[in-house]
Design a protein around this nucleic acid. Structure first.
Lengths: 137, 137, 137, 137
DNA sequence: GTGGTCTAGACCACT
DNA sequence: GTGGTCTAGACCACC
């Protein structure tokens, strides 16, 4: 099995910008542990070819991911998975909490039971890699 | 005390389009029960004045809310809060589940504990009005 | 005097990327108070014309400034000066401290006296707008 | 104890080019006096091995340092620490002053107090070796 | 009109 | 070969 990126599914009909779809995909792979720390991502050009997306669009997604701390880039070598964060980024966490509240509220309003929601939350956390998996960076 | 909408906070700095911010606000008020079923919403013109937002933008928000089933409009009379949904809109629920998973994953990745996340979820549901007291049928 | 941006000097021979030169210029204008909070910056297209720089390059500079918290953008309206930060961004401060140390070390090595260096530091701070100038955001 | 360079820390994640990181490190060692005048630097080959960096990259760093006057090279013998500069390189000093101003301005803008900044400046100078004990002439 | 996204294609710096 | 920068030109969403 080569260093293939498992699942980067882009839907051009999706109104969400392509570079955000790429970001979401890569984030998911990192968070679920499908991509390990310091593992190499496909190069900008390579991913551009396999997805038929313009390299600049890939580049933008990668740069965003870098500034958000998910990956780091080494000129001349490629992009790599960054170590998971050590300190809480309170601004980011707060923003995510707001999204969480809005989502849960609406689910509840639509008639989904609390236990169903909590089940999904619990299972999701199980499949994440919360801070673990490494000792030194 | 007039039929004023309690809290419609628009932040122009927020990159989210204004009409979506309005939608989010109205949804929140309906979901939390601050706006009761069949209660009248402020008219487009009125809200436009109090918020200094372009009426077209308000109009678009209301139209969206109507097509999503949160409100209904009576020509010549105004817009009113719709009854809460009786059967699950599975597509919408699935979309919300996806958002939920992505949000929870990222929170977990950023180092937020499961118990903290579950606490927020629990409290959020408490302050919602799931189904407005009706049973599923 | 119109809403002209005072001094945006771009030197194409400078090896520093154009978008960084733009960023530096805008930062300087904001930090020195030449641009006040919520003041409108020239539009991407406008600045592109007056500087003969490609709009995408301006766009990139503005986006960077936004993600660094110096400006905020309102779709359909333009870019505006953000309020000065309330909380210390410890990562950014640490990075700046490192630059500061390296610069001061080298100046000292090159034979510049401590008092000369401290004079420059002092005068620079005088001409900045440390947190002041506004009460509410 | 061999003539090992004490601390050459290269961070591949750092977007700064490796050869510049090497330059910064060597400069720091010279400025702080960890490397004395006429002391021999590790050979290109040796440093390349211990750091797993491409020899060409080391070579470029050394060449730059030589042209900036920090080291001198003796064909067949190696590279050595140059004597500290006797007269001010006004162009270089001016460039450093500009960096200094920009850095201090931004620190101040971010809310760091003048006294904190001046403390760092003062301590940094203490740990430098201004002119290696020589007087200006 | 304003910013946001995307494509196409080019050149440079670094390794 | 890899990422970084820049240009040119296009289309869309928002207001």
């Amino acid at each position: 099995m080569k260093g293939v990126i498992p699942i980067i599914a882009i839907d051009l009909r999706n109104p969400k910008p392509i570079y955000e779809q790429i970001k979401d995909n890569v984030k998911r792979l990192i968070i679920t542990g499908a991509l390990k720390q310091d593992e190499k991502l496909p190069s900008v050009r390579e991913l551009a070819q396999t997805t038929s997306i313009n390299p600049n669009t890939i580049q933008k997604a990668y740069k965003d991911l870098e500034s958000e701390g998910f990956i780091y880039s080494v000129t001349g070598r490629g992009n790599f998975v960054a170590p998971s964060p050590k300190k809480l980024d309170s601004k980011r966490v707060e923003a995510l909490y707001n999204t969480l509240k809005a989502t849960v509220s609406e689910l509840s309003y639509l008639g989904v039971s609390e236990s169903d929601i909590e089940k999904v939350v619990h299972n999701t956390i199980l499949h994440s890699t919360p801070q673990g998996g490494k000792k030194n960076d």
